[in-house]
Amino acid sequence: KKIKIKIKVYNPETKEVLELEIEVSEEEAEELAKKLAEELEKKGYKIEEVEI
């Protein structure tokens, strides 16, 4: 079964909002969402919402 992940991120420095969407297997979904959120935060983005 495929799971659709939508991530909306906001960069306070540039006032930019990015929306990302990807489909992955159920097993990958939670781990991938967690890794993406961590990487984006390292780059200065503030995570507003992660929906699985």
Results as ranks from 00 to 15, higher is better:
K4C: 15
L40W: 15
E51C: 15
A33M: 09
E38C: 12
V24S: 13
I22P: 00
E31P: 07
E31W: 13
A37E: 02
E23G: 06
S25D: 10
L32Y: 09
A33I: 10
E16A: 14
E51W: 12
N11Y: 05
K34W: 03
L18C: 15
E23Q: 13
E51H: 12
I22H: 07
L18G: 06
I47M: 02
P12Q: 15
E38W: 11
E28H: 12
E21F: 12
E39T: 04
A33Y: 06
L32Q: 14
E28D: 12
K42H: 04
E21I: 13
A33H: 04
K43M: 15
E39K: 04
I52S: 03
E41A: 09
E49A: 12
K8D: 01
V17Q: 13
E16C: 11
E30I: 15
E21M: 14
E48V: 06
K1N: 11
T14Y: 04
K43T: 06
K46G: 07
E30Q: 15
L20Q: 02
V24T: 12
L20M: 13
E38T: 05
E26C: 11
E31V: 04
K43L: 04
E19S: 12
E28M: 11
G44D: 01
K46W: 11
E26R: 05
L18P: 00
V9Y: 14
E21H: 09
E38K: 05
K8E: 01
E39S: 08
E19D: 10
E28T: 09
A29T: 02
I52T: 03
L32C: 14
K34Q: 14
I3S: 11
E31G: 15
K34I: 03
K43G: 06
N11D: 03
V50G: 01
L32T: 15
E48L: 07
L32H: 07
A29I: 02
E21R: 08
E26Y: 11
I47K: 01
E27Q: 08
E38A: 09
G44C: 03
K42E: 04
E48W: 07
K1I: 07
K8N: 03
E31N: 06
I5P: 00
K35F: 08
L40Q: 02
K4T: 11
I47D: 00
V9P: 00
L36W: 13
V17A: 14
K2H: 05
G44M: 01
E31R: 05
E16L: 13
L36I: 06
E39P: 00
I22N: 05
V50S: 03
E19M: 15
L18A: 09
E39V: 06
K46N: 09
K34T: 03
I3Q: 07
K35Y: 10
I52K: 01
I5V: 08
V9D: 00
E39N: 04
K1T: 05
G44F: 01
E23C: 15
K35Q: 09
K15E: 06
K1R: 08
E23M: 09
T14I: 04
E16P: 01
K6F: 04
K2F: 02
A33S: 07
P12D: 08
L36T: 05
K46E: 08
P12K: 07
L36F: 13
K1Y: 09
E31M: 09
E16M: 06
V17N: 06
E38N: 11
I47Y: 01
K35R: 14
K6R: 13
V17L: 02
K42D: 10
K43P: 01
L32A: 10
A29G: 04
K2N: 14
L18F: 14
K2Y: 11
L20R: 03
Y10P: 00
E49F: 13
E30V: 12
E49W: 10
K46D: 11
V50E: 01
E51F: 13
E30W: 05
P12S: 12
I47E: 00
K2W: 15
E41D: 04
V24C: 15
E41R: 12
K1E: 07
E26H: 09
P12A: 09
K1L: 14
K34L: 04
K43W: 08
I47S: 00
E23I: 05
E27M: 10
K35L: 14
Y45P: 00
A29F: 02
K15R: 11
I7D: 00
A37L: 11
E23V: 12
A33W: 06
V50F: 05
L32M: 11
E26M: 15
K8V: 05
G44E: 02
I22R: 10
T14R: 07
E28Y: 15
E27D: 12
K8W: 04
E28R: 14
E51G: 06
V9G: 15
Y10R: 10
V9E: 00
E41S: 13
I7F: 11
V50C: 14
L36A: 05
K46I: 13
E21S: 13
I22V: 14
Y10V: 12
A33T: 08
K8Y: 04
E49D: 08
K46F: 12
Y45T: 00
E27P: 14
E49L: 15
K15F: 14
K4S: 11
L36P: 00
K2P: 10
E48T: 13
L18D: 06
E26F: 09
I47G: 00
E13L: 07
E26L: 03
E13I: 11
E13D: 12
E16F: 12
P12N: 08
E31C: 13
E19W: 05
I7M: 12
E23R: 12
K15M: 04
V17W: 08
E19L: 11
V50P: 01
K15D: 09
N11F: 06
E28I: 10
E26T: 08
V50T: 07
K42N: 08
I52G: 02
